[in-house]
Amino acid sequence: MHINLLAWRGYRYGKLALILGLLSIVLYASQGGDAAQPPNGGTWQGYVLGTVGALLILWLSVLGIRKRRYNSNLGTVQGWTSAHVYLGGVLLLVATLHSAAQLGWNVHTLAYALMCMVIVSGFYGLYVYLHVPGRLAGNNAGKDREAWLEELAALDEHIREVVESCDAELQSMALSALELSRLGGSLTQQLSARDHSRILLPNQSKAVSNAEQAVMIHSLSQRIPKARKQSEAAVLNQLLALFGRRQVILNLLRRDIQLRGFLKIWLLLHIPLTIALLVALVIHIFTVFIYW
């Protein structure tokens, strides 16, 4: 019942984009062209392609407005997005044919390059929109981030209680492991999902890496066989289980942050580049008419 945005209404806009692409190729080919006048943006065919391309760019950027016109009944946002993807894709062809591969160090090529970057970032966006949500759902296993954070907080609370009965050394180690656990951080840290958690070891003033809670887990597992009392071993065992669970949840959350980052990061390129493209496009059109 749920249909993804590519398959919307039986690939309606895919078919439309295909037709538009074919027409553009025919139009381009009709320029014939000789050494004196190779195919370019200045022929009537070139103008048609350019006009189509410019209108497409304008229309594509209107999605940002349509998406927020919540009272609008002009189609569904999914339909618009589906059209946006296909027509954005075919724009690459239309504009390339319009340029006829005549590139140079000028504002025209700047507009073309910006457009390509917008489209490529859009392709990346399409890829993550299609693939990441499923992975995100799988990662989060039916709970949302809040619920996992709550479980983590409860787990930490539990560890604090259990560790109270341990010796001071282990206690300070465990507490430092809790305090120096890291989630999120800078953009690159979020996207890389690397574990920057640290731990303060006994008699040391500088914290060392505790990625994957490994130092803590290792240290606990080594202490268990050496425990003098059964009760002590039981406590250590319990701590080991708690830190094991902690490791899993921290990983899951880090992955969650990373995947959500993937879903959002491309918009930080796509949108500003679009605005730059619109500016360059206006300049491109103006200069063309000035030098006509």
């Binding site: 993804n4 945005l5 946002v77």
Partner: peptide
């Protein structure tokens, strides 16, 4: 609302 529920109509991915 002639377009149906706004939440459904505004979903960009059809989810």
């Amino acid at each position: 609302r002639s377009g149906g529920p706004a939440c459904v109509q505004a979903c960009p991915t059809g989810a």
